[in-house]
Amino acid sequence: MNILEANHVTKRYAEHTALNDVSISIPKQSIFGLLGPNGAGKTTLIRIVNQIIMADEGQVLINGEKLEPKHIGVIGYLPEERGLYKKMKVGEQLLYLAQLKGLSTPEAKRRIKFWLDKLGLYDWAGKKVEDLSKGMAQKIQFIATVLHEPQLLILDEPFSGFDPVNANLIKDEIFELREKGATVIFSTHRMESVEQLCDHIALINKSQKILDGPKNDIRNSYKLNQYEVTFKGTLQSGVSLSVLKEEVSDMGLNKAIIESKNGESPNELLKELINKIEVHSFVEIIPSINDIFINIVKGGQS
């Protein structure tokens, strides 16, 4: 079951097309990375899902239903450009934002207390936001995003501006929410920052989706059959392998990057290596999403 499906979504502006026939499916309880460089169209897609803007063509389904105003309560959105009312007290502000999402006042108050307690901010409820440190304000923003217990959390560039301690804290909270059933979308241009968090990804470049699917499948399908070997002895290309690069490592060991010639399995490669050298380590090189992205974009250009 997919919590979110975008089918052939297109959004045009006067001078350019922000999204061109983009389709993605986001499975329930996944952590989905919406990746691509700045200006690729990620924020446009997110804004469409949040009903801030409307798609020119295509449709968006939430839990199989056509996107409607009532789905506002299903989604928790932390935009890239985010802030709070500086002159408003923390508690009042969270209450206001929760009420806008449709929570009743007593329920909202209960949850605000819970979250402020959890993130150690309870004493600050009566303070104005301008009196808070930047890190605290970020935590408040996060609380505001999750207060109404959204099924779908959309975080646009979530870790930009977060200090590492807060970033980790928020990551833990996000995993916990996922355990409880929430689905999370990370949107970022810094692919390495969320790569290890995501289980599904979609790559967007120049208003088009260029790749999507489960992260591991993608990485496997872009495997280059390359391995890093540290060893003693001398290594030369052979029947099943060719040496791409060789260098001297420390402690009298050498290091090489080898490639299988005809898609031989690691075991077959090892068999040949063992006959030639003393193998100290043997690791398959799996490309990062960033590498895959660059690869595809460059391939597309040439």
Partner: peptide, 18 residues
């Protein structure tokens, strides 16, 4: 202007129509 400069407006319009 305050809502714009404090960057809260996008949070708000994700739950309220502009």
């Amino acid at each position: 202007l305050d809502e714009k400069t404090s960057r809260i407006v996008e949070v708000i319009v994700s739950s309220v129509r502009p």
